[in-house]
Write a protein that binds this DNA or RNA. Structure first.
Lengths: 251, 251
DNA sequence: CGCTACGTTGATCGCACTCAAGTATAGTGG
DNA sequence: CCACTATACTTGAGTGCGATCAACGTAGCG
């Protein structure tokens, strides 16, 4: 149609792949769950981390691998996917710098339940699960912070269960786009641009739908003037309208 | 049809409603996340709890209420339900003695996201969220344990998201019954009896379906000889067959 | 014994999945 | 710079699972 452009995403340019450089301390000290620790404590914690870089599409780990590390994103984007024997996957989350993933509990899960894949150039900091556990016991404030974040993720997952149970694809897609906008949105001339490679397939795996159906609903949203979208990108142009579409009627 | 019986559930008889009696220490010391603490520590923690009893059907709290307490089940069953404007609810979980629910994080959620309702005579121990937070910071081992449990619940919620996204109602129901059997099952002459009042509605709200569809699939399961069921109760009579029905094909 | 809530069964309908055949985009190598 | 190819996206037609609406059976309680 008329007003579609080509790849306005800037992530690969904006985020230089600086994984080997030692701004690790800088990154660690900005982590939400290390706030409150002294610089010295963070420096000490820092020694237990190892950094690792990933190209777009590379896997950080696969579901079923022995779960031995907690990882924190320094730069880039990572998606978490639950697999299925029949090839229909579920995209659990797209993570941004400062977020952790992987193995929280050494006792609990022996293997990863999901696959972690880099969406862009990504730098990940890794910590052995046992070291993480020691860290939690030494700094209770960190443990509480991690618990807070995990509890919030549980809330979000439960909300998603609810939506899958009661809402139409259209509503779930609108909701998902809004959430992505909040988390990854960057205002610009295209509207609120979702700063990550985002294919129809990804949206299908986030909403429990199919590529074709998502494509149809996206076309509809675009016709209504609520979004703009192209190959692997989406921008929200009419937030309020999308919110209305995501809202549930009282009936 | 032929072989249906009437209410084999024994919960109300087996669990005397002993909420006012002070076996609280006993109960607290058996909690998974207090293991490792000394009797004296537990006695001290005990002072901050208040007990409260509920009749079947009574509400422990409503979604939207200010979230000020962490609660632990001493005896009975509590279900957690997320509401919906249109009346289609989602049953998140059925909790048994020793399990906690409510407000984990004082900072985070100001109000409860779900409603908690007693299914049977139930005794609940309540702790102010602030006191819980202090407890977590004082006993890091407890914090780690709570984190473990929360992380596991997150895994389960994500698994449920996956199932809602890819599986049929029949498969989801089979899976749900198996999970309930594991958690609440009691072997007897009827098979593995799920020891809690469990209506078709509840199963519908657990699987993201409707009463009518659940009724149909339950009839089918019964005809196959996999379960027995009546008003508000279910027993599994052929575990392996149910497992096969819950399993996902490779292609 | 009747009332209420729970459960069953049938008929119909529509959302979204599936299969299929296209078009557009971006990266690649000449 | 442009053809070439791979991958992403679009659109159409047909189908089926499960929701909805409706009516009736059944258990248990007061």
């Amino acid at each position: 149609m008329a007003s579609r452009r080509k790849t306005p995403l800037q992530i690969d340019i904006v985020e230089p792949h600086a994984c080997t450089i030692d701004l690790r301390l800088e990154i660690l000290s900005r982590l939400p769950f290390f706030e409150g620790l002294t610089a010295e404590e963070i420096a000490q914690i820092n020694r237990h981390f190892r950094e690792e870089g990933f190209q777009p599409g590379e896997y950080v780990y696969y579901a079923g691998d022995p779960a031995r590390h907690l990882q924190v994103i320094a730069t880039g984007r990572v998606k978490l996917v639950r697999h299925n024997l029949s090839g229909k996957n579920v995209l659990l989350d797209i993570l941004t710098p400062g977020e952790f993933f992987g193995s929280l509990s050494p006792a609990e899960d022996q293997t990863y339940a999901e696959t972690a894949q880099a969406l862009t150039m990504t730098c990940v900091l890794r910590l052995e699960t046992a070291a993480f556990r020691i860290l939690l016991e030494r700094y209770p404030a960190v443990a509480v912070k991690v618990l807070d974040i995990t509890a919030r993720r549980l809330q979000e997952a439960q909300e998603r269960v609810r939506q899958l149970s009661v809402n139409s694809v259209e509503r779930r897609l609108a909701y998902t786009l809004l959430k992505l906008g909040e988390k990854l949105g960057q205002a610009g001339e295209m509207g609120l641009l979702i700063q990550t490679p985002l294919a129809r397939d990804d949206l299908a795996e986030m909403t429990g739908s199919t590529t074709e159906t998502i494509s149809r609903v996206m076309s509809q949203f675009q016709k209504e003037g609520w979004i703009q979208s192209g190959r692997q990108w989406v921008a929200i142009t009419h937030l309020e309208a999308l919110r209305a579409a995501a809202a549930e009627e009282i009936e």
